[in-house]
Computed example of a mutant assay.
Amino acid sequence: MASMNDKDYYAILGVEKDASTEEIRKAFQTKARKLHPDVNKAPDAEERFKEVSEAYAVLSDPDKRKRYDAMRSGNPFAAAGGAGGSSPQGGYGYDPFGGSPFGWGPFGSGFGGAASRRRSRAYNPKAGADVIYELTVDAKTAAEGTRRGVTYQRYAPCGVCHGSGSVEADHPETCPTCGGAGHITVDTGLFGVMMMTCPECEGTGKVVADPCHACGGTGRTLSASEVVIDVPAGSHDGDEVRKPGMGNAGTNGSSAGDFVCRVCVPEERLTRRQAGGFNLVGFAVPFAVLGALTSTLASMSLIIVIPLVVGIYMVVRDGVRASGRWWRNAGVAVANGASNGLMLALFMVMMFSCTSGLGRAGYMGYRYW
């Protein structure tokens, strides 16, 4: 069997050496459909299918493709830190593809990123995500309530295929590349038999029969939408108004997310500095209580006074608010700081109890007279 150095993967896929990743992907899909053993009964179809799959596995990954090009040029270590370097990888038996030629790359979990944004025949119904929108109003408006119109961008159901991803067919069809398995196996020879996620159906085993030209088979397109939000009277900072089904549309006819409007009232919200200041104030409280109970306030003065002074300064610097919700948020921040201070205070009590229990014997077990 020919080694990787002897194989011209570009020629196998029928693409130029400067072909883009999308061109390589399309070339693989075209050849894979023609050479799949379930479709092509020629004696050499299976072998050619494996060869095409191997070529795609390498050229579709930028890092592996770079190393392959370097290896073909006669310098297999150029892509791994320079020729003639002292790297421990620079020797016989070094794998220029960093393990297997498939790795994660465009397969497996890799389809969560760029692949989901490109045109694909994969039939992969997934619920749409919520759209989060922050509406900033003053305290008076929040108390009285208001109605606002909002224009925003979201993935909406495709108007051509009505969200299915297919123009005419009512149901998806079995993937012709993997036969519905969701993966294909490749005998690379050098690395043995490898299994990789099918790049055509992206692991689902199904593809859209006739992909819509407007949405590329996903069933949704990016568009501008409008919604009217009614903020009820008596709202406060952090309250939410939800519009069901007005978020991002799902793929291939799946359910849509919601439009979530979060009310933001600056008068009721602590600044980051104020939240930190109230945390410091709360941190000092357990030590003050502990000092009072054990008559050790004097020895704990630093750990009490410094957080209190710094915390109060941080709070006052950004201005104290008269809002009841602001003070409620302040109380939450103090409680959070107090919980942290309490843990440290209890730890100090335990340490003091343990060391006191040693008595006159001291830490090393020696008795002094």
Rank of each mutant, 00 (worst) to 15 (best):
K243P: 00
H236L: 05
G277L: 02
L222I: 11
M246K: 10
C264V: 10
E240D: 12
I229E: 00
L270H: 06
A233P: 04
R273M: 10
E267G: 10
S223D: 15
R273L: 10
A249Q: 11
C215P: 11
V231I: 09
N279D: 08
A224L: 13
R220P: 14
C264F: 06
C264K: 15
V281E: 01
R220F: 10
R220M: 13
Q274C: 01
T218V: 09
E226K: 15
D230L: 03
T221R: 08
R269V: 04
D258V: 00
G276K: 05
L280E: 05
G257P: 13
P244Q: 07
T221D: 12
S254Q: 13
F278L: 06
V260L: 01
P232I: 01
H236C: 09
N279V: 12
E268N: 08
L270K: 01
V281F: 08
G277F: 04
G253V: 08
G216S: 12
T251C: 12
N252F: 10
R242N: 05
T251K: 13
T221A: 15
R272W: 08
V265C: 01
F278C: 00
K243G: 00
N248F: 08
Q274I: 06
S225I: 05
G217H: 14
P266N: 02
D237E: 13
D230P: 03
T218K: 15
C215L: 13
G277E: 00
A224G: 09
V263A: 02
A224R: 11
D237Y: 08
G247D: 04
S255H: 09
A224S: 13
R269C: 11
F278A: 03
